[in-house]
């Protein structure tokens, strides 16, 4: 029996990048996966890929910053798959800028998607998890939580998610719910591609430069992070809670 057989997983921001890799891995190992993203049609590729490999998945459009939308989608997921066991809070955006150029909208948008989004989705998911005395929540922090030029907003949000993780671990632990976070470093996704564009460096060149400063001498792949998130979402990690695992190949040095 695969490790997620009979489990229902919700992955936010699952149309692309790390979210897509995580959704596919959870589905490959037996979970029914609700693939959430802003635009339902953007989830089509992930859902088709999962179904073509014999897995179960369904797309849901969800604006994680909208309380009513989140409640509605979790209800739909629970109706469709009859439970919610695993939540991967992965939805994220960047609005990078140096502080003096950062607008209030840059700040608020990033806070809303990461922090308000993780809050609303976790609050919706815990209803099902507490009732069934079982749940796994994996939040997506980042090495940017430790500080990153041009990312005052993103860094703050990603550090905030670590506090959120540790507090939920304390509050939800008595109900059999483990809450952890992964903190990816440089992973090849559309988001890091966008960062390269912003700083005016060719993406391949940027990856090469980053790899030189990473102990493992390579940049990460979405699957590198998905493997760790899936481990944390599995019963192999049944006594791991409140942890933040950096998935960064040893970090920059």
């Amino acid at each position: 029996m695969a490790r997620f057989t009979g489990k229902v997983a919700v992955v936010t921001g699952a149309a692309r990048g790390i979210g897509a890799a995580t959704a596919k891995l959870l589905a490959r190992d037996g979970a029914a996966v609700a693939v959430l993203d802003m635009d339902e049609s953007s989830c089509h590729d992930v859902v088709s890929a999962i179904r073509e490999s014999g897995g179960t998945a369904e797309a849901f459009s969800c604006n994680v910053t909208d309380s009513a939308d989140v409640s509605k989608v979790f209800e739909q997921v629970a109706n469709r798959f009859s439970a919610v066991h695993i939540l991967v809070n992965n939805a994220g955006i960047i609005r990078d800028n140096l502080l003096f150029k950062m607008t209030e909208d840059d700040w608020d948008s990033v806070m809303n998607v990461h922090l308000r989004g993780a809050f609303l989705c976790s609050r919706a998911a815990q209803q099902y998890m507490v009732a069934q005395k079982y749940g796994k929540i994996v939040n997506t922090s980042s090495t940017s939580a430790l500080g990153n030029r041009g990312q005052a907003n993103y860094s703050t949000a990603k550090a905030g998610l670590q506090g959120f993780t540790k507090t939920l671990a304390i509050e939800l632990g008595p109900f059999g719910i483990c809450v952890n976070a992964v903190a990816p470093g440089f992973i090849v996704t559309d988001m890091t591609k966008e960062t390269s564009r912003r700083i005016g460096v060719d993406f391949d060149e940027n990856q090469r430069r980053a790899a030189e400063r990473i102990p493992l001498r390579r940049v990460g792949r979405p699957e590198d992070v998905a493997n760790v998130s899936a481990f944390l979402a599995s019963d192999d990690a049944s006594y791991v809670s409140g942890q933040v695992i950096y998935v960064h190949g040893g970090g920059f040095y």
Partner: peptide
């Protein structure tokens, strides 16, 4: 099981980390 994961080929990009298996204690 946590040691085994970190010691395995399934872990490809986690290194230099100190992880606790403590049920949220610390």
């Amino acid at each position: 099981k946590v040691v085994a994961f970190l010691a395995s080929g399934a872990n490809g990009y986690v290194t230099g980390q100190s992880l606790l298996v403590d049920g949220g204690l610390v």
